[in-house]
Amino acid sequence: MQRPGILRRGAEWAVLAALALGGVWAPVPASGMEGRELDVASAQGAVKAWLFQAPGEARRPTVLILPGRQGADPLFEAYSRYASKLAARGLDACIVSYYGPGEAEAMAALDQDGRRRMFAERAPVWAGRVRAVAGALLAGAKSNGRAGIVGFSQGGYLGVACAAADEHLSALVVMYGGIPGRLAGNLRRLPPLLAFHGQADQVVPFAEGAALVNTAKSLGGFAELVTYPGEGHGFGPAASRDARERTESFLLERLR
């Protein structure tokens, strides 16, 4: 089975193109697209992130967006539109570039087995960076003390690793991901989970998403798998719209 970090070259371009061009994410004003660039210190080095703040002064939750294998930069506009949509619903949304210098290029240059090994080796470091960003944002004056994760593909696997280790993360959304190999059989906790998977996914098999949700249920928590028959790795306009609406409702319910 294929694991995070071993997606075929170009596969995630198609995935995020569906988000950006499929008519699901409506255009937003330029000011909403920019976000505020952050440099967050962590034990694993500085982490770059972009914060899209919800309007108003009320305390609100934070959602961390974890990109797939390509990283944040190549598809930044698509991720920005996603973040802007969440911010418009009252959720501070933060795109996290969990790669360090040269890591995106190194991942892109590897073959399938090499990408699998690199993810296994680097995932603890990347998770540490994500958790550092979460901690910094939770300490902010406008935070309500609750944070969640939305992870795409490899970012979904990484989100599982982060949420399993950090009780401050109160909700998890996984788009076509699964359980990291090192955690298979070793998960002890997960926050409420909403997972999305296409039954025709040839990159991350549907069985991996189902195994994640079944494991989460066995731990006694809330977990739901939304299945899209005929959809592959990344969804068409109708499924994308449905996933967005379900994600927003889930995050608002769990984090407010």
Rank of each mutant, 00 (worst) to 15 (best):
E121D: 14
S153M: 08
A147I: 12
R117E: 14
A132D: 09
S153G: 02
G148P: 06
F152Q: 03
G145D: 10
F152M: 10
G151C: 10
W126F: 02
G140I: 00
V125M: 15
P124K: 06
R129D: 08
A136C: 10
A139N: 12
V125E: 15
G151Y: 05
A120C: 06
R129Q: 05
G148D: 12
A123L: 11
F119V: 00
V130H: 02
A139Y: 09
V133H: 03
E121W: 00
N144Y: 09
V150I: 13
V130F: 03
Q154W: 04
A123T: 00
F119R: 07
P124R: 10
A134N: 10
G145P: 04
L137W: 05
K142A: 08
F152A: 03
R117H: 01
R146S: 04
W126K: 06
F152P: 00
G151I: 07
F152L: 13
A139E: 15
S153W: 08
M118A: 08
R131A: 10
V125Y: 07
A134R: 14
F119W: 07
K142I: 00
A132Y: 02
A136R: 15
A134E: 14
V150S: 01
V133D: 10
M118S: 04
I149L: 15
Q154D: 08
R146E: 12
N144E: 11
P124M: 10
G128T: 00
G128W: 09
A134K: 09
G128N: 09
K142N: 13
R131W: 03
F119N: 04
R129W: 06
R122A: 04
A147D: 04
G151H: 10
R146H: 11
V130N: 02
G148L: 14
N144I: 07
N144L: 13
E121T: 04
V130S: 05
F119H: 06
R117D: 14
V130W: 06
G151K: 12
Q154I: 00
V133Y: 02
V150C: 05
A127M: 07
R131S: 10
S143Y: 04
R131H: 04
L137T: 00
A127I: 02
S153T: 00
S143P: 04
Q154Y: 01
L138N: 01
K142F: 02
G151L: 11
L137H: 06
A123Y: 02
A141F: 09
R122Y: 01
V130R: 02
R146G: 00
Q154F: 03
G148H: 09
V130A: 11
E121L: 07
R117Q: 15
K142S: 10
L137N: 08
V125Q: 15
R146C: 01
R122D: 05
A134S: 13
